[in-house]
Amino acid sequence: MALIPLYVPLCIAAFFFVLPFLWMLSGAFKGPGGVTAFPPRFWPSHIDGRNFSTAAAGVSMWRYFGNSLFIAVVSTVGTLLSSSLTAFAFAHLRSRARGPLFAVLLATLMLPPFITLIPSYAIYQQLGWLDTYLPLTVPSFLGVGCAFYIFLLRQFFLGIPKELFEAARIDGAGRLRQYASIALPLAKPALITVGLFQFVASWNDFFGPLIFLTDSSKFTLPVGIRFFQSLYQTDYGTLMAASCVTVAPVILLFLVAQKFFVQGIATTGGKT
């Protein structure tokens, strides 16, 4: 009973946290011109899908959807491979260089992307990679930007009993076998967490595609929305339709796999 006053601040906060999403949804379905009505209507009088057709005309948002999906999937695969290999080495393979290199890995967490970006841009230019998806996918196979994931997976691998690896070694399994048939299957929850975070990070990424892509048919959804903004100005209906298409998959992933997102975030919070 003593808790009832808490509902007042909780509901006010919840209203403001949810409002942008409701506003996006209602704006998308209000139809052309429906968004300029003042006072604003909170809910469309009837469902009108024409904003979606506008956003699907020309270089379509569905094309951007496909581009975003391709980049996100490939970079997630790369991240899972490189992060798990690296984390396994840091957790279970002994070397004198392990400690210092792990410190280096953690230090890269603090590095602002700008500091490496300009020379990287020049490198990609030399390689002829500009305006392709290579700068947005290849680095993930090399563990670039994966320090947090490597840390998370290493913590998980450290929790696997050593005896399991000993037993496998006695049975003649090499390191690669131990990694692939013991560490990876046991680390499935942590791998799902890492995969989800990377997928969402790549899906939401604005900076990378903005800098590396110039051909508007290659854009991803976030850069595409920005491009729509320049085409349709303040036609918020069209922008909201494209925005809905962008956030829908992430909302779905979040609702289905909230547990993994929570675990991933909670692990960073100094449970060390």
Binding site: N204, F206, P222, I225, Q229, A242, S243, F254
Partner: peptide, 9 residues
């Protein structure tokens, strides 16, 4: 669920 769509709305 963040990024450009939210900034636009």
């Amino acid at each position: 669920v963040t990024g450009v769509p939210l900034f636009v709305v």
